[in-house]
Design a protein around this nucleic acid. Structure first.
Lengths: 383, 383
DNA sequence: ATCAATACTTGACGAAGGAAATTATTGAGC
DNA sequence: GCTCAATAATTTCCTTCGTCAAGTATTGAT
């Protein structure tokens, strides 16, 4: 975790993680939360303070009978280290600088003209250099997190397959480390975003948590028993190919009535074109028509939202997450989606699962890059 | 864990669990598998041998260049302790005696004439007494596991709600301990069966694993990252209410096209009656008709199996288990189900998830009781 | 017999965290 | 201001647990 190449005591990692994700906490509060003795927390906290990761806040005021010594909450020193996060899409790199508490300090992006690995690495290096130099972050930057869609092995930093970039078995971590000189972590983009929400967003404190992204495709990240779900065959969170209509349209995956074949951006555009008669219609055009009150195109969005809600209910029924966040670039039109998503969810969520809170909100694209940085923070803290 | 009320060293639990579930292993093999030093295994194994839980097998023969000292594999002494397991259904108690390695040593059952708690406890006491006394197991029996369908809090032994028995908030553990004099563990029946398959069946060694039961209802137990999934709201594994057909039949849960509304025993009987014209048809009668070649009734089973396969694919897509076992009393007719389940699964399983091995086989009813005993074994070993 | 290879054991050591006493700091009551 | 109860943080001592490194055990090959 720390400057010196020592192994951090488990309690130190636990204390740092708890303060990082759950905000300022007194030593006694930490002890309760972590199931440790007060002594253990005191011992773990001192080196963290000495190293500049934690600081003591002003003692809190107490009330009640007898009062007692006020607590000195420990809080993170967010500017102790910085982390870069870059989301790699098919046509753009989006990069951010985050502090230890995952606050975005700077951001930038660069268009991609090709999809070959060399070009991406060149642009990546330009992006990271400009981010590091402009804010003077270079000396205190500890990790570069890369988020990319597709099948990624976080442990080895290997991109097994990335459909949008047409990459197969690219050793992205090694290549990016050589190109940028930074220590790199690579993760699937949805998992990275899920991690960010779990540590710093709405999933904080939840033992289990799900994030659903709606966009070109439909994805899902899962945290169960406090741990990210990865899947034995490298497959997990493929909510987009859950079948919600046995008589529905065929999907490119070979399935029938997949959520993505009903609610994916391409599927929506195609159906909107067919129903409206505008053969040139774009996604945004379909949104505009629906907002303008076009019944047939509106129904396309309603059905799409319902299908998504159904699939989210399947997640809730199966793993029972404490809460679910629905987001993604597709939610730019979330005014059209929100109600049908909730309708579909509430219809298919069984029993207590229907009580699972659903947050439906678009996340700015920058958040994906922040997710990448968060993976770097995790890797650093857990190291 | 052991006779004396001491806390067992973590390594002792790990070693005992590994030998229990993965069969005879040498100390060196255990050290590799558990990530411990050889010394730690030696130290953990000795008291386990002294206490009679483990025994050394005859040294294995070695081959290859240089040979070396032969390993002395450690194996479980299965008859060191015994465990009772009882599955509680609406009209019957099924009980078994298992040894430490979950082999069934004896079994018995008793019909239930009422569903009230007192009657069940009386019959349970008779059942456990006869099982314990007939085989002379009483002195060496450590736990009684109870498996019951519905919402159960394993930690407190509270049955929050059991639909078949119409129980609400029954403190079953306390009551059963008072009635039988045994230490009791209570678990949901599907979770108990899942646990049994995870420790002693096809799920051994799998980091993630799913079990699907087909019967009156359709249930699912999940193991992810080596741990049973419980769900934040007490809901998990409710595969039966995943919607696979937005235009399908209404389900009693309020959903539409739920798996259970298509493939539950009641739904199948009802549709078979309607399509065949036999208004008195039973489930077994429908099976007979389908086997005899009745196209319409056969189609009911085909559609039911397809829906189940679809839902299983949803599980595979979402959590990516290493393998899936499909079982349950409904699979008495598994010759009618197997092919459509596989068809539905293969169509909707995405990418590598389609490679997830599916074991479709009926499990004898006794296995549910064995599952209950397995929960007792786990509780004992982990204590 | 000697050697390399592998399995297992032993004893010294150190890391990590707990228990309980101690110190620190507050408000309330006098 | 002083004392007391209450709560927070620290300190000291101790136990537990597992590693390290060295040594013992047992085999086949030469």
């Amino acid at each position: 975790m720390f400057a010196e190449p020592e192994t951090a005591a488990p309690a130190m990692t636990a204390v740092l993680t708890a303060v990082l994700t759950e905000g300022p906490l007194s030593r006694v509060g930490l002890a309760r939360r972590l199931g440790l003795s007060q002594a253990a927390v005191t011992k773990a906290a001192r080196p963290l303070i000495d190293l500049g990761y934690l600081q003591e806040l002003a003692p809190t005021e107490r009330t009640g009978p007898g009062a007692g010594r006020p607590a000195s909450p420990l809080s993170i020193r967010a500017d102790r280290e910085f982390f870069l996060g870059v989301k790699i899409t098919a046509d753009e790199l989006i990069g951010v600088v985050c502090d230890l508490s995952a606050q975005v300090r700077a951001s930038a992006h660069r268009p991609l003209t090709h999809r070959d690995v060399e070009h991406v690495l060149t642009e990546l290096t330009h992006l990271t250099n400009s981010l590091l130099d402009e804010g003077g972050y270079r000396a205190r930057t500890r990790r570069l997190g890369l988020a990319i869609s597709g099948d990624v092995d976080r442990g080895t930093g290997l991109v097994r397959y990335s459909p949008f970039l047409h990459w197969h078995d690219v050793a992205l971590r090694e290549l990016a480390e050589a190109a940028t000189g930074l220590t790199v972590v690579v993760e699937n983009d949805v998992k990275a975003l899920t991690t960010a929400e779990h540590w710093f967003g709405e999933g904080v404190g939840a033992e289990s948590f799900a994030l659903v992204t709606v966009g070109t495709g439909i994805g899902c990240g899962l945290v169960v028993n406090g741990r990210l779900v990865s899947g034995s065959h490298g497959v997990a969170g493929e909510i987009g190919h859950i079948g919600v209509d046995v008589n529905g349209p065929a999907c490119h995956c070979g399935g029938r009535g997949c959520v993505e074949a009903i609610a994916g951006a391409d599927a929506i555009v195609e159906r909107a074109r067919r129903l409206s008669g505008h053969s040139e219609l774009t996604f945004d055009g379909a949104v505009a028509l629906a907002r303008a009150g076009d019944q047939r195109v509106g129904a396309v969005f309603t059905q799409a939202g319902d299908a998504i809600g159904c699939a989210i209910a399947a997640v809730a029924n199966l793993v029972g997450p404490a809460r679910i966040v629905v987001s993604g670039e597709g939610l730019a039109a979330y005014d059209l989606f929100e109600t049908p998503i909730r309708t579909g969810f509430e219809r298919q969520a069984f029993g207590a699962a229907a009580a699972c809170p659903l947050s439906i909100r678009p996340l700015p694209f920058e958040q994906w890059a922040r997710g990448a940085a968060t993976v770097g923070i995790q890797a650093f803290v857990a190291a």
